[in-house]
Design a protein around this nucleic acid. Structure first.
Lengths: 198, 198
DNA sequence: TTGACTTCCGGACAATTGTCCGGTAATATT
DNA sequence: AATATTACCGGACAATTGTCCGGAAGTCAA
């Protein structure tokens, strides 16, 4: 097709590395796109052509982490396939809260750039969200089989679950009550998952 | 103290009216602060001195609506004090989803302007949030009395409940599944409130 | 009325985001 | 090799947000 497909990938990698370094040095919110472009030795147009906005760039920075998380979750779920679905759900949420603990700044930036109408880079269509939603939906459906009064729409319930995991709320709980991620995950599961089980 | 306390209030009112009109004409996201200031016949500095940002202005626009909502909730809760706490919780959430239906654009703008570190205009400290949180916490504590395994920390659970009500998630459910607000509220209560009751 | 003090106003200004377009280099065509 | 085509680059540019400061206006005291 065109000349520098490989160079292009290397450039993307170099941009992400530059951004990561700047984020770690000055904090995510303090770094501008202009700054990133300049530090990466490219023009702003080039940066924006690859990443629609800062949230998008953060999403790409988290892509590897998301992949790892997803693989971990898949592996965990396979290994614990014999456990009741609710317990597997709790494992998933525990992992998610630990993930939030480390990545809250980037996740917050992603959330901050979500626009109401912007359907193009829709968070709900992103691979991490769809995977998570699918996983939770499936577990809820499985849990439904052993419930006397099944949940009417596990897909909708799964969306609510994920919504409750917002970075803002997590940070607020962490800072206000000074709970550990494990404690927060336990409280979450106790409030919303355990009551769903027999 | 100073000369025009009353004029100042009138100016605030006129600013809010102007903003409301512009929002209704062009949509909330399409209107800039500069535009609002110009239309209101004031400088940008004056506008920003009264409202720290667009989200703050939206919050003030919703202040009356919030007050009405809060009064309605108080009245409802008093009248239905004899019902089990879970049913009262469901009523609260139903009202909240109906509120979202009408105010989603403004609520979304408020959420969009939340910053991670910004503790000054913290959403979690705003009167509507604290009222809501307090109300839900109390109902959960009341529900706890008749539960064999009480919720460990109703305050934290209440934060999660509110987090699940995010405008983005609500809009997504509405647009994707084409459910009515009532249906969404029912699904929410069925998923998270009913399982908490005996 | 004058003068000191306080409060508020509003546009100029800086910073940031996101878009656009002229230029360049690599590829395909003849 | 010469030309046409395509993809891409990057800075200039417009739009928006949020800040700042000179100045107007009102208050109080003498």
């Amino acid at each position: 097709m065109h000349g520098s497909r490989k160079d292009s990938q290397e450039l993307s990698k170099s941009i992400l590395q530059t951004a990561k370094a700047l984020f770690e040095e000055h904090g995510v919110e303090a770094v501008s796109m202009h700054q990133i472009a300049k530090a990466a030795g490219i023009g702003q147009g080039t940066l924006y052509r690859r990443y629609a906005n800062k949230g998008d760039l953060c999403m790409m920075l988290l892509k590897e982490n998301f992949s790892e998380l997803i693989e971990e979750l898949k592996s965990d779920l396979q290994q614990s396939a014999h456990l009741p679905p609710c317990e597997r759900l709790c494992c998933v949420f525990r992992k998610l809260f630990l993930f939030h603990e480390k990545r809250s700044k980037l996740l917050g930036e992603i959330h901050a750039h979500r626009k109401m109408e912007h359907k193009k880079t829709d968070f709900f269509q992103s691979p991490p969200y769809t995977f998570l939603h699918h996983t939770i939906s499936d577990l809820l459906e499985e849990a439904n089989r052993s419930r006397k009064s099944p949940i009417a729409d596990p897909a909708v319930t799964a969306h609510f679950f994920i919504s409750a995991l917002s970075p803002h709320t997590y940070m607020h709980l962490r800072d206000t009550y000074e709970y550990t991620p494990e404690r927060i995950a336990d409280l979450f599961c106790e409030s919303f998952v355990k009551p769903l089980c027999g």
